[in-house]
Amino acid sequence: MKSEILYPGAFPMVRVDLAAGEHIKAESGAMVACSPTIDIESKMEGGLLGALSRKFLTGEKFFFQTLRASRGPGEALLAPTVPGEIVILELDGVNEYMVQKDGFLAGADTIVIESKMQSLSRGLLGGEGFFILKISGKGTLVLNSFGAIHKIELKPDQEYIVDNSHLVAWSTTTSYNIEKATSGWVASFTSGEGFVCRFRGPGLVYIQSRNPGSFGAWIRQFIPVSE
């Protein structure tokens, strides 16, 4: 599987080249166009129960697509729903990432996707819900974000503070605590930040430059109210 980001910026696509017989997983609905040699199958990752738990608990789609180059080599174009950047990561079998529920776009068939339950405080206050995706294994992983993707590199014990709704993915070697943005409760919310995540390295944290929730709230004021 070879992948390349086309039109980097707000409206990118990924071109994935598949050798004959090769297949990849993609978010349901991600396929934009593909060679006629490629078959699209829907597959419930992790069996019915896994798929059900993903659907109900993470809000992720019930089915992943499998794009299979079953009749010879070919290419597929994939795109996310929201405007925003795409990033390609290579997993080497040791690296593991936690990905917030809308962050997964596609991945090699050799990567493993699980729904994982967060601790109560992280689930309640972290802004990603109680269940997030844990992605491990070996191969290419394609993530998408809302806005631009920014990578934060943390050395061992280095700390960094991230607004919880800007998180996209973070390595499992990092750890984080949820805390109030400012020392007082009232100021925490009036500052517009509410809760933030204090990350501690080592590892990588990918963040998105826009907050989907705030954008939704902003756009709502322009939607005419029908009687």
């Binding site: 080497d92 079998g93 040791v94 690296n95 050395k155 390595s171 390295g201």
Partner: peptide, 19 residues
């Protein structure tokens, strides 16, 4: 040889060096 750990240090990438 397959990697079974990640090593962090000044000259390694921030994601850790597989080892």
């Amino acid at each position: 040889m397959t990697s079974n750990a990640l090593c962090f240090g000044d000259e390694f990438p921030a994601a850790g060096a597989p080892c």
